[in-house]
Design a protein around this nucleic acid. Structure first.
Lengths: 194, 194, 194, 194
DNA sequence: CATGAATGAGTATTCATTCAT
DNA sequence: AATGAATGAATACTCATTCAT
């Protein structure tokens, strides 16, 4: 048990080091040796947990993405109304992106870069299903515009990524009032007009 | 004259090769030798036009960003109404992102990655001023929601980047109808409610 | 223990390869890859033992210089008379320069070239102190001319470098008789006239 | 004539640039492009005057060496006594080494380095003949010790190189008094004992 | 499991030299 | 004669990965 825990700790240390370093220096300037050093293990040890650098970054991506979606849907319940459900999910996502910004930055970099395997990318997308289901329900009920999921995501969720990056660069600080405005904008762009 | 043109051609070939290769393989997997080969010059020749790899990618970024904004505002005129002006600019931006998708992909990668110097990033932002001026006018006239520029950008412009990337990955194809929907969503997220 | 010895062996092999190659081809024509090959290690291995090429050559200089002075004073004893002491040291130096000529050649090249860091040069000079002390004693006793240490070195020790180089170029062969003449010349140039 | 003069000027500028740069940075850190820049010509122009880098440095060596010997013997006359002749030559050499120290430094670097062709080295030695003749005379007359020319050079002339280098490094300043001491040491090391 | 040492294959960059003008 | 642009062949150095311990 203790041994297993130590293993998990090491794996986590490696994942976290990868996130930190890739965030700050970029994938191209993040050598395995630096990751090892930050995780306080030998470079060789990385290869006990991951096949190679590509695998390390793929697995990191999947893990972070999975944390992200778990967080997003943690307080959501399918019995909620579409409107309420969307608000609940949106706010959790906003929370994650702005508070766990290191993780969110890492995802943003992965999503805009040929740095992740296509397969891992697909794997990462899967977990968004509850949101897509909610939207399907919303469209059927005439509450949500009959747009493709990509379009809905582009206008209601993705802007949060941009705001998160901007905030991380120090250009802007998002407080409660602005978050409300953001939600308002998100909702008004996808809710069906009466 | 002919010599000058040859120089310009070579520089352009290098810039284009950089865009192509960074788009497909990522900055980390784009060696100078490959760029040189694609541009049909010797590796050493790159250093006649750029100081080093970082400078090459910085200059490429600034050039592409500058083309992007020039394209965005080419048909815009300050005498237009806010509503018309926004539509004109938005459609040009959409055009650029979806048709010149290689350039747009390159910008997206640069904007989400520590691959560009902060200085070059700032340089790239400058040219967006006409849009910010338009928004200022719209806010004064009560036509546009009184949101920060970052917020307006996040909801009305940035979603196009997400749609562009998604289309480039083959997940979706944006036709005229969907572009209209996108514009509708963009506009409704920033226009002031009556 | 064995591992440590292997490390020391490798470091020594690198130092020796550096001496050999710099002697024969000059610093400018001695690539790291050649040094590695001669030391039977990979080029990358050099960087486990030295920071870079400059560091390798600095450290080599300091090591050789240190061997040189250790050799020079090995049989000297401060209780000796000035005359005897000088003879003992001079003969050891002559021995070193003429027998360990590869090392002596390397030092000569370093001493006449901007190939070594100033800091390493200073480090190398330090160890000559016993000779300077001997001269101080000699001057006090009126046995040695009241000249600066540089002057004494120039006339009594440095000529050996010239002779060593000339011998190495094959122009001359120094046998016992000529060594005696050389010592005679050295001594007569610095001993106080009665 | 004017055209010829311009050519000579360029050649001289190249030679001087070579001396300066090799003195300050070392042969290994002196690229042709830098030499060209300092001489205010194009890199390609160097090849109109010299075959290649090796040739440039060989020719520079021969030229400097030749200036050196011309200077050394300029005021010497074979009708002088051995003692007077030696003093005259020695003082001119000292003058050259300490006043034209850039040239002297360059020679010292060449003489202790495999940076010059053997052939050019031989060519450079030739011009010392008058000194050797003087010594031959001195030995016959019993005024000079019956030592080989190398030995005489090592003790009476070469120390000046060491003193010149030391002075150039700033460790010591040779004034008139010290020059007299140096001459005294030089002479006493080679003059025959009565 | 864990590691530090070792490395081969690469990478950015430089440089002596050439060539079209 | 003179040049600036161009380049192929190096070169110092890095890094993902392996292996003996």
């Amino acid at each position: 048990m203790a041994a297993l825990q130590k293993s998990i700790d090491k794996r986590n240390a490696l994942i976290n080091a990868t996130i930190d370093l890739v965030n700050n220096d970029g994938f191209h300037a993040t050598p395995m040796s630096k990751i090892a050093k930050m995780a306080c293990v030998s470079p060789a040890t990385i290869y006990l947990y991951f096949e190679n650098k590509q695998d390390l970054v793929n697995k990191t991506y999947i893990e972070v993405k999975s944390n992200y979606t778990a967080y997003a849907f943690a307080t959501y319940d399918e019995s909620m109304s579409v409107e309420k459900g969307f608000e609940v999910i949106w706010k959790r996502i906003a929370d994650f992106k702005l508070k766990e910004s290191a993780h969110a930055m890492f995802l943003a970099q992965c999503d805009n870069t040929p740095m992740i395997d296509e397969e891992s990318r697909q794997e990462g997308i899967k977990h968004l299903q509850p949101l897509l289901d909610l939207w399907a329900r919303g469209k059927k009920e005439g509450i949500i515009k009959p747009l493709s999921d990509y379009m809905l995501y582009a206008y209601s969720i993705n802007p949060l990524s941009f705001l998160m990056i901007t905030q991380n660069r120090g250009s802007v600080k998002l407080d409660a009032k602005e978050l409300d405005q953001a939600f308002e904008a998100a909702w008004s762009s996808i809710k069906a007009c009466k």
